[in-house]
Design a protein around this nucleic acid. Structure first.
Lengths: 196, 196
DNA sequence: ATCGCTATCTAACAGTTGTTAGTTTTGATT
DNA sequence: AATCAAAACTAACAACTGTTAGATAGCGAT
């Protein structure tokens, strides 16, 4: 028996997760209750359990969805023949795009992962560490090839990822700066600071 | 009657807030209970209320302590005669120092302020907005004086503050990079990216 | 119309939450 | 040694937590 599809290609489980993402971002995972979630879904709390197994399953779905998107994008970039600087620019632009288009999901993956239960927590942190290591390998190559200035790669990765994650605060703001200006200026800042 | 001082110049209230800062950082404000806090303080939960008024009073104390330190440092920098670039470097170094030396406090002020009750929440956000505006004014001057490259000041501030806030993740890590290298590299990255 | 299967509902569970009331202990000052 | 306030304790509160059990309603296929 096929899953009920509410609209086009959308299971009720997907609706729940989407509403949960918004709720978890607004109130934090710990402070958002299943009854809060049920209300925005338009159902009683107990009914949610016909579609999901637990509250933390929702968090897992969100965190690993985001992680997987970043990892598979990185794999594509690694396979390309672009310069190291171009690779970093592509990755930075992708991170910014994700932050603009999938704000709620990325925010939760960035800020609420600590509430993942084991063994998902360790798994998530391992993926994260590995991802950052691969970014810092690209920067290390860039320095070796004299395309980038001699900066500690670990710190460069930390700076880049944290800076982009700060777009969260732009999302919450009155947005006197357009998304285009934001992307252009941030890419300029982060790439110029990297360039030899 | 003077407050009881546990060690030198330390009231029990200060001890509670310090322990709370560590706890809130580890578990998040929402997930940390007063009974958790009581345990690390070495007392029953009800006894905490001889020294504090409520759980959220602790959060207020932490958030506004940090905010005040940043604001009064900024005021000193504004009064100085340094170049705009030097001003920004001083501010960046101060933020990094705070992140290294008062990690727990700064982290909570950065990440848990959303749990502040009104009117403290609005008050906090106003101070924050005003602080960032004053930073972007410095950068605007820097661009006008041709000391800095033409970057959208709002985005530059966002980038700088977020990047520094990411030191949080270094704090939690195994620290293969020293604090000195971290500071030197991050300042280099952020200032070079700003310089004309 | 009736079957079978979902999805929803109500009610309840056992545990936890921040906090208060009332009592007892502690420890410095008299 | 007596006093007295500060600070600790025990016990409890009402509200809320994630989750389960069991009954009921909805609905496509027979």
């Amino acid at each position: 028996m096929a899953k009920i599809r509410i609209k086009k290609n959308t299971t009720k489980k997907e609706v729940i997760i989407e509403k949960a993402a918004k709720l978890f971002r607004e109130k934090g995972f710990g402070a958002a209750s299943m009854r809060d979630l049920a209300e925005v879904v338009g159902v009683e709390a107990a009914s949610l359990y016909n579609h999901i197994q637990s509250k933390s399953e929702i968090l897992q779905a969100i965190c690993f969805k985001v992680a997987n998107e970043f990892i598979s994008h990185l794999e594509a970039v690694e396979r390309s023949n672009d310069s190291t600087l171009k690779k970093m620019e592509i990755i930075i632009r992708f991170h910014i795009k994700m932050m603009l288009e999938q704000y709620e999901y990325v925010y939760i993956s960035d800020h609420e992962w600590r509430h993942l239960p084991e063994p998902y927590l360790s798994n998530f942190l391992n993926q994260r560490r590995s991802y950052r290591k691969r970014l810092s390998d690209i920067i290390e190559q860039g320095i070796a090839k004299n395309e980038m200035k001699n900066i500690e790669p670990y710190v460069a990765v930390l700076t880049i990822l944290s800076a982009i994650s700060g777009i969260e605060s732009w999302q919450r703001s009155r947005k006197t700066t357009s998304a285009e200006t934001l992307e252009a200026s941030m890419v300029k800042y982060l790439i110029e600071g990297l360039k030899k």
